[in-house]
């Protein structure tokens, strides 16, 4: 369990992350963090959630700058493909990031189909952080 705005919303966030693991073949762990690299919630096994959270901010920032430099339009996500697995980083609204860790067999197409709904759910849960 990791720091969040309230215990109730933290459990809900972790549920959404665990649900993504169930829905998409090959997803093994995931981390939700703020855009400045602080850990919000994690569904992890061996990964260090704080380290992933910090690196997610840097990864997406670099990706956005590269996309801008290349003139390829708005950044959707950053996919890191390795010999033994995948890391996908994407924005959740304007203030949070989602990092998804998967094995080499990750169903990337299924992940891209599922992430809009996951992002919407997470965004809805995080809206409570902002005072009305």
């Amino acid at each position: 369990m990791y720091a969040g705005s309230s215990v109730t919303s933290l459990a809900s966030l972790v549920d959404v992350l665990a649900s993504l693991r169930e829905k998409v073949m090959g997803v093994s762990e995931s981390v939700l963090s703020t855009t400045d690299g602080l850990l919000v919630a994690a569904d992890t096994d061996t990964a260090q959630p704080e380290a992933v959270a910090a690196l997610a901010a840097a990864t997406l920032g670099l990706g956005a700058r590269m996309a801008e430099q290349a003139g390829t339009g708005a950044l959707r996500d950053v996919v890191i493909r390795c010999g033994g697995g995948h890391v996908v980083v994407l924005a959740v609204g304007e203030r949070a990031l989602l990092s998804v860790l998967g094995d080499e067999g990750l169903d990337v197409a299924a992940l891209q189909r599922e992430t809009p709904a996951t992002v919407e759910q997470l965004t809805g849960l995080l809206e409570g952080d902002v005072p009305a």
């Binding site: 090959g26 010999g83 080499e104 067999g105 169903d107």
Partner: peptide, 23 residues
Amino acid sequence: ETPGTPSVESVLLKSGRVDDKGW
């Protein structure tokens, strides 16, 4: 090739039989 089971690449690399450079 399917995400449901390891590919030839996965098995060769995971077992260390072939390294990334050789692949």
